[in-house]
């Protein structure tokens, strides 16, 4: 795993399973790669990276489901678990695709994570909402 710090102060983890992870303005952003098999192990590895990036703080998490074609129940259950809620302060799911929207809404409506969670279509609005939980 490689951490890159750009000049704008963001930290990128490009080789994270499922897609790159970026921390910018105290918000952790994950872009799930559509080609990757997003398994429970992937999810745990991602959360592990998030855990390192947050440096003990509970930070907002922005996940982009635009390229997700399926999110298995174990993964959804994991993201809505207490373990994750202790590491993040809020969760915003965004998607530009129809499938991502279905998956995102399903996750929010059915799995009901323990931290404040919203499905949104606009990234800026999502970031603005997440900042309330910094």
């Amino acid at each position: 795993m490689t951490n890159k710090e750009s000049g704008s102060g963001e930290i990128r983890v490009d080789d994270a399973p499922g897609g790159p992870i970026i921390m910018k303005d105290q918000i952790i952003r994950i872009k799930v790669d559509q080609k990757s098999e997003y398994t429970l192990d992937n999810a745990r590895a991602v959360v592990s990276i998030v855990d390192r990036l947050r440096e003990g703080l509970r930070l907002p998490l922005l996940v982009d489901f635009s390229d997700v074609h399926f999110l298995s129940r174990p993964v959804r259950e994991y993201y809505s678990s207490e373990e994750v809620s202790q590491k993040v302060s809020s969760l915003a799911i965004i998607s530009s695709s129809t499938i991502g929207k279905v998956i995102g809404n399903f996750f929010v409506g059915i799995n009901r994570p323990l931290v404040p969670t919203r499905f949104m279509t606009n990234e800026e609005e999502a970031i603005a909402w997440l900042k309330e939980y910094l």
């Binding site: 399926f70 999110l71 298995s72 129940r73 695709s97 129809t98 499938i99 929207k101 059915i110």
Partner: peptide
Amino acid sequence: TTIPDSDDTLNAVLVGLNMLGEE
């Protein structure tokens, strides 16, 4: 079941049904 490389609404419904079945 899903239809590969399809992002239309029906495929999204299929994904939803898949997840519902899983639930």
